[in-house]
Simulated assay, not measured.
Amino acid sequence: MDEVTRFRAALVAWAAGGAAAEAAAVRARRLADGVRTIVLVEGGSDQAALEALAARHGRDLGAEGVAVVPLGGATNIGRFLDVCGPPGLGLPLAGLCDIGEERHFRRHLERVGLGTGLTRAGLEALGFHVCVADLEDELIRALGPVGVQQVIEAQGETRSFRTFQGQPAQRERPVDHQLRRFMGTHSGRKALYARALVTHLTPARVPRPLERLLTHV
Results as ranks from 00 to 15, higher is better:
Pro168Ala: 04
Gln149Ser: 09
Thr202Trp: 00
Phe128Val: 10
Val148Arg: 00
Glu102Gln: 15
Ala13Tyr: 01
Ala28Tyr: 01
Glu102Ile: 04
Cys131Gln: 11
Leu118Val: 15
Ile77Val: 15
Thr37Leu: 13
Leu31Gly: 13
Gly95Glu: 15
Glu138Val: 15
Val26Tyr: 02
Arg181Trp: 09
Ala204Phe: 01
Asp46Met: 04
Val12Asn: 12
Glu153Ile: 10
Arg27Asp: 11
Pro145Arg: 06
Thr163Met: 09
Glu3Arg: 12
Arg189Pro: 02
Gln47Phe: 00
Leu123Asp: 13
Gly43Phe: 01
Val112Ala: 07
Glu124Asp: 15
Leu214Asn: 04
Leu93Asp: 05
Ala28Asp: 01
Ala191Arg: 14
Gly184Thr: 09
His177Arg: 14
Gly188Tyr: 00
Ile38Ala: 11
Val206Pro: 07
Ala10Gly: 04
Thr185Trp: 01
Glu64Asp: 14
Phe182Tyr: 08
Arg159Thr: 14
Gln178Trp: 02
Phe7Gly: 05
His216Leu: 03
Gly58Arg: 12
Arg8Lys: 13
Pro209Thr: 03
His186Ile: 11
Pro92Met: 07
Phe7Thr: 04
Pro174Leu: 07
Ala55Asn: 02
Ser45Tyr: 10
Gly85Thr: 04
Phe80Gly: 10
Pro203Val: 06
Leu91Asn: 08
Cys84Pro: 04
His177Ser: 04
Thr37His: 12
Gly65Cys: 09
Ala32Ile: 12
Gly58Pro: 09
Leu50Ile: 07
Gly72Asn: 03
Thr119Tyr: 07
Val66Leu: 08
Ala63Met: 10
Asp98Gln: 12
Gly115Asn: 08
Arg162Gly: 00
Ala23Tyr: 01
Gln149Lys: 14
Gly85Asn: 03
Gly78Ile: 02
Val198Asn: 02
Cys97Pro: 05
Cys84Tyr: 07
Ala74Gln: 11
Gln165Pro: 00
Pro86Thr: 01
Val12Glu: 14
Thr185His: 07
Ala24Arg: 07
Val206Trp: 06
Arg212Cys: 14
Phe161Ser: 11
Cys131Gly: 11
Val4Leu: 10
Gly144Ala: 01
